[in-house]
């Protein structure tokens, strides 16, 4: 019994304490400013246990803004690989989701999903803080789904 209580608490905690790492792939900084705006007293995401931890090795969520180009795609992949499972990825803004107006440029790979799997797309140019918070909450749902799938496949 106590073991399952602890396990349940850990599963609950995964949704109560999403730590973010934010990576700017080459954004115009519009979306970055909005990400930081989430930390301000007006939005105060720490209410939900969200911390902008700035270190992939500690993070559960990767927030990516801007278009991916040939230079930083390896960096993006590296950061993603350094995050311990379970983890989710959010692509923010028009550029992050699809490459935006730069998608045809010679140096651009495209959206984040060309390099790493993306769980939640948050559109906007720039994204609104409310949309980012909404995206994080949606991502938590994805995280729960992923855990459920993982435990289901483990049972089989």
């Amino acid at each position: 019994m106590p073991v399952s209580v602890i396990k349940d608490f850990i599963e609950k905690s995964r949704l109560k304490s999403p730590w973010l790492v934010h990576f700017d792939c080459g954004s115009c900084n519009g979306c970055d400013i909005e990400v930081l705006a989430c930390l301000t007293p007006l939005y105060d995401v720490e209410r939900f246990g969200i911390l902008n931890i700035g270190n992939p090795k500690h993070a559960d969520m990767l927030l990516v803004t801007g278009t991916v180009n040939h230079r930083n795609k390896k960096v993006l992949k590296n950061l993603y690989d350094q995050m311990p499972h379970p983890k989710v990825v959010l692509a923010l803004g028009a550029c992050g989701t699809s490459g935006g107006v730069f998608r045809e440029a010679y140096n651009v790979v495209g959206g984040v999903d060309k390099v790493i799997p993306v769980d939640v797309y948050v559109p906007g140019c720039a994204v609104k803080p409310e949309a980012i918070i909404d995206g994080v909450v949606t991502a938590l749902g994805r995280l729960a789904e992923k855990r459920a799938e993982a435990s289901a496949s483990a049972k089989e």
Partner: peptide
């Protein structure tokens, strides 16, 4: 600290959520 910065802040048991989550993460 959050109140000092006119924020609401996390729940009181937030540190336990954090530690439990970290404990449940992949070992790298």
């Amino acid at each position: 600290t959050a109140r000092c910065q006119s924020r609401k802040g996390p729940p009181l048991i937030q540190p336990f959520y954090d530690a439990a989550k970290l404990w449940g993460k992949e070992v790298t």
